[in-house]
């Protein structure tokens, strides 16, 4: 039996087959329009607004690298990983979204090294796998540097 595909955390991005394509999901305050990611469903954080109603919105899938680093050592739980496999560092990006201008963190697609990255480099949101074992596949988002286009030197 094929392992089940489950979002590593529910409600933060679109599911497989969504007509909007693969997108991060935030919410907008129905009263003042303030944008929240990760989603806010209870209280508008704008101090001048008391709204408790929110509309789900798909965020723009492109942005530019605000900053970046990598994780050379295994993070502690609840980061899911196979203890028996050798640790492979991954790059971690903070990306300023093109339209909303908020900064959103995410892992880079596997294999990206920090030497290839630059602040200001354009990146694109792509579906990714955080962890996989016999029973389950935990899905997430990754940032993919737009190598073939502008930004690389």
């Amino acid at each position: 039996m094929a392992p089940t595909r489950t979002p590593a955390v529910a409600g933060l991005f679109t599911e497989d087959g969504d007509p909007r394509g693969f997108r991060l999901l935030g919410t907008r305050c129905a009263a003042c329009g303030a944008l929240f990611f990760p989603r806010e469903d209870d209280f508008c954080r704008d101090p001048g607004c008391t709204s408790t109603e929110f509309i789900e919105v798909a965020l723009s899938p492109r942005g530019r690298i605000w900053s970046y680093t990598d994780c050379r050592y295994p993070p502690p739980p609840p980061y899911p990983r196979d203890q028996d496999r050798e640790w492979e560092p991954y790059a971690l990006l903070a990306v300023e979204l093109k339209e909303e201008r908020i900064v959103v963190m995410g892992q880079a697609v596997p294999g990206v090294r920090t030497e290839e990255l630059e602040v200001g480099m354009p990146v694109e949101l792509v579906p990714g796998v955080l962890h996989e074992d016999a029973d389950r596949v935990l899905t997430t988002w990754h940032w993919q540097p737009e190598r073939a286009t502008e930004g690389t030197r």
Binding site: A8, V9, S67, C71, P74, Y79, Y90, L92, M105
Partner: peptide
Amino acid sequence: FRLLGATNPAYFAL
């Protein structure tokens, strides 16, 4: 931690 494995040093590095 769950989604990103983002430890405190990762933020300091950003």
